[in-house]
Write a protein that binds this DNA or RNA. Structure first.
Length: 525
DNA sequence: TCTCGCACATC
DNA sequence: AGATGTGCGAG
């Protein structure tokens, strides 16, 4: 219980502001070597007690290598893991407090990209985002001590291009750019999802942004994957190996010229013809660091964020460290970094199951997500709330919450409401229904239960009141936040979740789609 | 573009 | 030993 939530007093808004500035300038500082350790992410805090939390990206150097070339992640119907894997070291949590760690992947901007002339460029407007799904770390909820004890791995998270995916995987559109985010939600009783003050913080590592593809476009990326992913070891080899393989497969026929893959090593090696690095996009690498810390999220203005069109949206600021939050954080920050060394067993414990939760929109938790997409009005709405990433300074917690939740639930709303129709549809099945009032519960449960409701899907049904009304209410309604649906918001948020059919996937995947949080009704009742 | 079966790898 | 994760390249 109660342990408290707080370690610190609120501060809320911390950093946001700071962070915000975008910087673009700096780019890379990071590679200092610390690699993973340095927290480069940007954080948004929503409530108290979350300020001193630091999150360090594991193997950041590897991420930066990919980022410098323009990271691509394969998406398949069955679901494909990300590589590099998203693993983090967390510091600054209250050892006794329980937290839920989850991840989502939000659109980085509103564009559709194409890879031509060895570089990425914008080729049009992005397709409407689907309701985002959240991947709840299987160990959730767990104490701060648990999460800080070892690396927290999200490696089992899978990406799919199947909009009707029944497994709870995160659904993305090919040739679109995305930004993974990690959210830490306090799961105290006092703070369940639904409760009024749901405290949570969001961390974004710009260097983990990527373009979803059904097949690799840039050979350099293929090469990096082969060289670093143990499962692709079979493609490494020296030339001999390759030749052998090729010969077997093709037996002489063609040696590929340069088609995409063919070249693997060689190409990779460096020179690839393509190589260009350029990516029009963005290479984020530079950006990367920015994010670090803590902001508060919010957003009101999300606008800022938005568009960026061109390239990378991410706001950055990089600062490395950042300010996290201010005070305390600082300490953490530093320390944090080191903290981890590789040894951790990978994932935190069980990774086995992952739970996925759908979030409404990409923004997910509102926080950040949104930023990018801003464009569409509809979305925006949603986003607004969230957005912020870069942008604004501190919103109020409330906002955040709103957003947050919004993300969580609202989304639903957002999505539901405003969003394009598409979104809603499909997912229904999965609802996992977490019903419990609080996220926590859900989360906790998440894994476990699946729920019954599948069928309907969408009924948006369930709502929970969980979220703080206040929070939500305030902002949301008012304008700031999400507009919409918020409706749900109004006090409640809805999150409805869809249950995932367990059958399909065991609990592991629980995704939640959108939605609103339900109260207890159902489940718990 | 995307999907599929394959050989090869890890777990 | 089986399940599962990889990129390849044909379709």
């Amino acid at each position: 219980m109660a342990d408290q939530e707080e370690t610190f007093p609120i501060q809320s808004s911390p950093g946001g502001s700071d962070s915000r500035e975008l910087r673009t300038e700096n780019k890379s500082e990071k590679p200092n070597g610390t690699s993973s350790k340095s927290p480069s992410s940007q954080t948004t805090y929503i409530q108290q007690g979350m300020e001193g939390i630091k999150v360090y990206l594991h193997e950041r150097e590897l991420w930066v290598k990919f980022d410098e070339v323009g990271t691509e992640m394969i998406i398949t119907k069955a679901g494909r893991r990300m590589f590099p894997s998203f693993k983090v070291k967390v510091a600054g949590l209250n050892p006794k407090t329980k937290y839920i760690l989850l991840m989502d992947v939000v659109p980085a901007d509103d564009h559709r990209y194409k890879f031509a002339d060895n570089k990425w460029s914008v080729s049009g407007k992005a397709e409407p985002a689907m309701p985002g799904r959240l991947y709840v770390h299987p160990d959730s909820p767990a104490t701060g001590a648990h999460w800080m004890r070892q690396l927290v791995s999200f490696q089992k998270l899978k990406l799919t291009n199947n909009h009707l995916d029944p497994f709870g995987h995160i659904i993305l559109n090919s040739m679109h750019k995305y930004q993974p985010r990690i959210h830490i939600v306090k799961a105290d009783e006092n703070n369940g999802f639904g409760s009024k003050n749901t405290a949570f913080c969001t961390h974004v590592f710009p260097e983990t942004a990527f373009i979803a593809v059904t097949s690799y476009q840039n050979h350099k990326i293929t090469q990096l994957k082969i060289e670093n992913n143990p499962f692709a070891k079979g493609f490494r080899g020296s030339d001999d190996m390759e030749l052998h393989r090729l010969s077997r497969m093709q037996s002489t026929k063609e040696y590929p010229v340069v088609p995409r893959s063919a070249v693997r090593q060689r190409v990779g090696s460096s020179q690839s013809p393509f190589s260009g690095e350029v990516q029009g996009l963005a290479t984020p690498s530079t950006l990367s660091s920015q994010y670090s810390q803590c902001e508060s999220g919010v957003t009101s203005t999300s606008q800022d964020l938005l568009p960026q069109s061109g390239s990378y949206p991410l706001p950055h600021e990089h600062g490395p460290e950042y300010h996290c939050i201010k005070r305390k954080v600082e300490d953490d920050c530093h320390s944090g970094e080191h903290s981890y060394k590789k040894a951790y067993p990978e994932s935190s414990s069980s990774e086995e199951d992952h739970y996925y939760r759908p979030v409404g929109y990409p923004q997910g938790l509102g926080l950040a997500g949104g930023p990018y997409r801003s464009e569409s009005s509809q979305r925006q709405a949603c986003m607004y709330a969230s957005a912020s990433q870069g942008a604004e300074p501190v919103p109020s917690l409330e906002d955040i919450s709103c957003n947050t939740w919004a993300s969580v639930s609202p989304y639903g709303s957002c999505s539901v409401t405003t969003m394009q129709p598409m979104d809603r549809l499909p997912y229904q099945h999965f609802s996992a229904h977490f019903t419990s009032g609080s996220l926590v519960s859900r989360l906790g449960g998440v894994g476990g239960h699946a729920s019954p409701q599948l069928g309907d899907g969408h009924h948006p049904a369930m709502y929970q009141s969980s979220m703080t009304h206040q929070t939500l209410g305030r902002q949301c309604s008012p304008g700031a936040g999400i507009q919409s649906p918020a409706a749900g918001l109004q006090g409640n948020e809805y999150l409805y979740t869809h249950g995932i059919p367990r059958t399909l996937s065991p609990h592991q995947y629980h995704t939640v789609h959108s939605v609103s949080i339900m109260p207890e009704w159902n489940e718990n009742s």
